[in-house]
């Protein structure tokens, strides 16, 4: 299975994961500082900043784009409960 690595900058921890893993699955297990609310892409609580490897996450869905816009997300912000890891990337809580 293809592997990818994600680095949580706030805790300086890198995790090697199977490609396709959602960020939420990893961040909670390693105790990163991204926090979660509804966990289904609606509330915007888990907004994170992708500092490297923006293109190595799955494309945001139309619904995620809408929630990001409603929450006035900056460039390269994503919802950690929605984004899936395809290649190496670095993230931190927004």
């Amino acid at each position: 299975m293809a592997k990818a690595s994600i680095t949580f900058e706030d805790i300086e921890q890198t995790v090697s994961v199977p490609a396709g893993t959602r960020v939420i699955e990893v961040s909670e297990k390693v105790g990163a500082g991204i926090i979660y609310g509804c966990r289904e892409g609606d509330c915007g609580t888990c907004m994170m900043e992708v500092t490297e490897g923006w293109n190595n996450l799955t494309e945001p869905s139309v619904l995620e784009e809408k929630v990001l816009k409603e929450n006035m997300a900056g460039r390269h912000y994503r919802l950690a409960c929605q984004a899936q890891i395809l290649g190496d990337c670095k993230v931190k809580p927004a």
Partner: peptide
């Protein structure tokens, strides 16, 4: 001062 820095494998996470 987080102590661990090595790359963790997802499969090893509880």
């Amino acid at each position: 001062k987080p102590q661990k820095k090595a790359v963790i494998d997802f499969a090893d996470l509880a």
